[in-house]
Amino acid sequence: MIMDDLNWKILKCLQQNARMSNAEIGRRVGVSSPAVSERIKKMEDAEIIEGYTTFISPFEVGYQLKALITLHAFMGMLKPFLEKVKTYDEVVNCYRITGYENIVIEVVLKNQKHLENFIDQLIIYGETKTQIVLSHVVKHSEVKPLK
């Protein structure tokens, strides 16, 4: 699918507010609501738009810690870990990466004891390193057109 300027403008509106109505998007980008709807559907079908989600503040719902944990998987343990990580409620994001560590996991936890227990579950799969997140510097940044 070709991403023209109009599609990028529609995506920008959706990235700012995924609940924005097609009529409002149309007003902002200068086309009709049905034209917006058709373009959004095509971008969904092409998997450019992967889905819609709600971002929740973990601290406002009772979590006290956010951490980034890197894992260097032991020989033969990467594939089992890739299946197991999908079952952990604490995991917000998980990335397979290059370099010495194979994995970066973003987790939210109730407290330090919860972090300790979570790490205890990971160490059977490999060596871990943990960093506590102090604050977000860039939050949910938009994907912009390539120049």
Rank of each mutant, 00 (worst) to 15 (best):
E116A: 13
S33E: 10
E50P: 02
N102M: 09
V29G: 02
K84Q: 10
E47N: 09
S32Q: 08
V108I: 15
T98L: 04
V29T: 02
N117P: 03
V85I: 14
I48S: 03
K66C: 02
I123C: 06
I69V: 01
K110Y: 14
G62K: 11
I48W: 02
Y52Q: 13
V91N: 04
A35L: 04
K42V: 02
G76F: 00
T54N: 15
I49Y: 00
E101M: 06
D120L: 12
I97P: 09
G76A: 00
A46V: 03
I49G: 03
Y88I: 10
N111F: 01
H114M: 13
K41D: 06
E47F: 11
F74S: 13
N111Q: 05
L82N: 07
F81W: 03
L109M: 14
E106G: 13
E44G: 07
I49K: 00
M77G: 08
A67N: 15
N111A: 04
F59Q: 15
L68R: 09
L82K: 05
E38D: 11
L68G: 12
E47Y: 14
N102L: 06
I25S: 04
L115M: 13
K113R: 08
I105T: 13
A46S: 07
T70N: 00
T70A: 02
V107A: 12
C94M: 12
K79E: 13
A73I: 03
I97W: 06
H72M: 10
G99A: 01
Y125K: 04
G62P: 15
L65M: 10
Y52A: 07
R28N: 07
I40K: 12
E90L: 08
A46M: 05
G30S: 15
V108H: 14
L68F: 14
A23K: 09
E90K: 09
I119Y: 00
I119P: 00
V92C: 06
D120A: 01
G99F: 07
I103Q: 01
L71K: 00
G62V: 13
F55Y: 15
F74Y: 15
T54E: 14
D89H: 02
I40D: 06
V31W: 09
D120K: 08
L109Q: 10
I105P: 00
K110C: 10
G62Y: 10
D45I: 12
E60V: 05
G26R: 03
E38R: 10
D45V: 12
I48C: 04
I25L: 09
S57K: 06
N93F: 06
E83W: 07
G76I: 00
E60T: 09
E60L: 12
V85K: 14
E47M: 11
A23P: 02
V61E: 12
V36F: 03
K41S: 01
V61P: 11
L71T: 00
D89A: 07
K110L: 12
F81I: 04
P34A: 08
